[in-house]
Simulated scan of single mutants.
Amino acid sequence: MTTILLIDDDPATLEVINECLLPHFRTRIATRGGKGLELAQLSPAPDLVLLDLELPDMNGYQVCSALKRDTRTAEIPVIFLSSHTDMADIIRGLELGAVDYVPKPVAPPILLARVRTQLRLRQAQIYLADRNLHLEALVRERTHALEARTLDLQRSQELTIVTLGAIAETRDNETGNHIRRTRAYVRTLVEYLLQQPAQLERMPIEEWELIWKCAPLHDIGKVGIPDQILLKEGPLDVGEFEIMKRHTTLGRDALREAECGGDTQHPFLRIASEIIYSHHERWNGKGYPEGLSGENIPFAARLMAIADVYDALISKRVYKPAMPHHKAVEIIVQGRGEQFDPLIVDCFLVCADTFDTIATGNSDNAPPQPIADTSLATGLIRGPSQPG
């Protein structure tokens, strides 16, 4: 049974939290930071820690740091509890390794939702690591059966992608068919580029195919962004945007953890990591998280960038109306050589009518339509400084 460790010295808060969690989880309780660290090391380890910032013997930051330094507890998600809402305090906690922040007095429905979200993310990370080990075992055991091994790998990869993409969708009820549309846009760009012989030299055909298959994972890191920022109705302030930008790193790190479990780096993990981590980089070097420019930006991320921005432009959000297709095309063209790779913008212009058709057939109000996974081998962003 899932175990939650509560570290708080306020009896009233503990009573509220315990009453909220006990119907669903097992709980351990500590009223001092030192005792909390002891309970965190018991077997089985807790699946999540709810940690008050103000404790009698040490503050929550010290407890969180100690948890993250210990290899036995470093991977346990930590959610801070505090009556303070200063953005600097929230950022400090996230930088120490916390995954979320819940204000006091605690609202049980919000707390339960946040806890379940972080548990789902942790389960996905564990699943991905286990899946990677399984893939490595298959490779070692079936080197004499190449066709069967390849089929197993593809099925495992696609199952992982679908699972993680679905988790990302549960966090944001506004994006509708965004994941479905952007995958189709990226596939359209890939198929057009593959008609050009010079582009075939970039990578094997199987890796071209992985680009569009991995596209649904591009925002998986948003699972780790606090609700009050991810679901905010209106522009993000500077501090909030800094936290939002962390979704690229959170998503990349989840896949990197899985890569550490094997002896080799699977192409689909590498390509997915490139898309997740770098799809907000800009051709002119003014993007994030690293400020990469030009050809230093992974090619898969450059493809994803145009698909993601186009869909953000033509989609309605609480902070903006939907933009007509022709206006979105104009903005993409204006970004040629600034925000976007000129080659991919030129490709986009040729495929623009197909983008419009995909958007119309997969609108946010339309029921999901199946997207065929046929192998290629056989067949308004919130503003200039904010993410879509």
Results as ranks from 00 to 15, higher is better:
residue 85 T to E: 11
residue 333 V to H: 15
residue 72 R to L: 11
residue 158 E to W: 13
residue 340 F to H: 09
residue 285 G to D: 01
residue 209 E to R: 00
residue 94 L to M: 00
residue 69 R to Q: 07
residue 106 V to I: 11
residue 351 C to G: 06
residue 299 F to L: 13
residue 237 D to G: 02
residue 98 A to G: 12
residue 91 I to H: 07
residue 243 I to T: 00
residue 318 V to W: 06
residue 303 L to I: 05
residue 254 A to V: 10
residue 279 H to Q: 02
residue 44 P to Q: 05
residue 80 F to H: 05
residue 377 A to V: 12
residue 62 Q to C: 06
residue 324 P to C: 11
residue 59 N to T: 09
residue 386 Q to I: 00
residue 165 G to N: 05
residue 44 P to K: 07
residue 216 P to N: 09
residue 107 A to V: 14
residue 75 E to R: 05
residue 95 E to W: 04
residue 388 G to R: 03
residue 65 S to Q: 06
residue 28 R to I: 05
residue 48 L to M: 06
residue 375 S to C: 04
residue 195 Q to S: 07
residue 181 R to P: 03
residue 164 L to R: 11
residue 69 R to M: 10
residue 297 I to Y: 02
residue 340 F to E: 03
residue 240 E to W: 04
residue 61 Y to G: 01
residue 109 P to R: 09
residue 372 A to F: 13
residue 51 L to R: 03
residue 117 T to W: 00
residue 120 R to G: 04
residue 112 L to W: 06
residue 142 R to Y: 15
residue 47 D to W: 02
residue 332 I to Y: 01
residue 167 I to K: 08
residue 258 A to S: 13
residue 116 R to G: 06
residue 215 A to H: 04
residue 15 E to P: 12
residue 175 T to V: 14
residue 144 H to A: 13
residue 211 I to V: 10
residue 253 D to V: 08
residue 338 E to H: 14
residue 228 Q to P: 07
residue 258 A to E: 06
residue 241 F to G: 03
residue 284 N to E: 09
residue 289 P to A: 05
residue 223 V to Y: 01
residue 347 C to W: 02
residue 207 E to W: 12
residue 252 R to S: 14
residue 105 P to F: 02
residue 127 Y to T: 14
residue 176 G to Y: 01
residue 246 R to L: 12
residue 38 E to R: 10
residue 133 L to W: 11
residue 61 Y to R: 00
residue 15 E to I: 13
residue 29 I to H: 01
residue 180 R to P: 06
residue 200 L to G: 09
residue 107 A to W: 09
residue 364 D to R: 10
residue 111 L to R: 02
residue 229 I to C: 00
residue 188 T to I: 05
residue 266 H to N: 13
residue 82 S to P: 04
residue 108 P to L: 10
residue 278 S to R: 01
residue 240 E to N: 04
residue 105 P to E: 09
residue 357 T to V: 12
residue 205 I to H: 07
residue 30 A to K: 02
residue 138 L to A: 08
residue 92 R to T: 07
residue 245 K to H: 08
residue 363 S to D: 15
residue 67 L to I: 06
residue 218 H to W: 03
residue 129 A to H: 10
residue 159 L to D: 11
residue 305 A to P: 00
residue 288 Y to C: 10
residue 153 L to Y: 06
residue 59 N to D: 13
residue 186 V to I: 07
residue 13 T to N: 15
residue 175 T to M: 14
residue 360 T to H: 14
residue 288 Y to K: 09
residue 43 S to N: 01
residue 378 T to N: 13
residue 172 D to M: 06
residue 99 V to Q: 01
residue 137 A to I: 10
residue 243 I to Y: 00
residue 40 A to H: 01
residue 107 A to E: 15
residue 42 L to Y: 09
residue 254 A to F: 13
residue 140 R to W: 10
residue 2 T to Q: 15
residue 71 T to I: 14
residue 347 C to D: 05
residue 386 Q to W: 00
residue 339 Q to R: 15
residue 366 A to K: 15
residue 131 R to Q: 15
residue 186 V to M: 03
residue 355 F to V: 08
residue 59 N to K: 08
residue 132 N to M: 12
residue 224 G to Y: 02
residue 340 F to V: 07
residue 303 L to V: 02
residue 2 T to H: 12
residue 380 L to M: 14
residue 203 M to Y: 04
residue 90 I to F: 02
residue 304 M to D: 02
residue 349 L to I: 15
residue 268 F to P: 00
residue 313 L to E: 03
residue 169 E to I: 07
residue 22 L to M: 15
residue 317 R to M: 03
residue 122 R to C: 11
residue 288 Y to I: 05
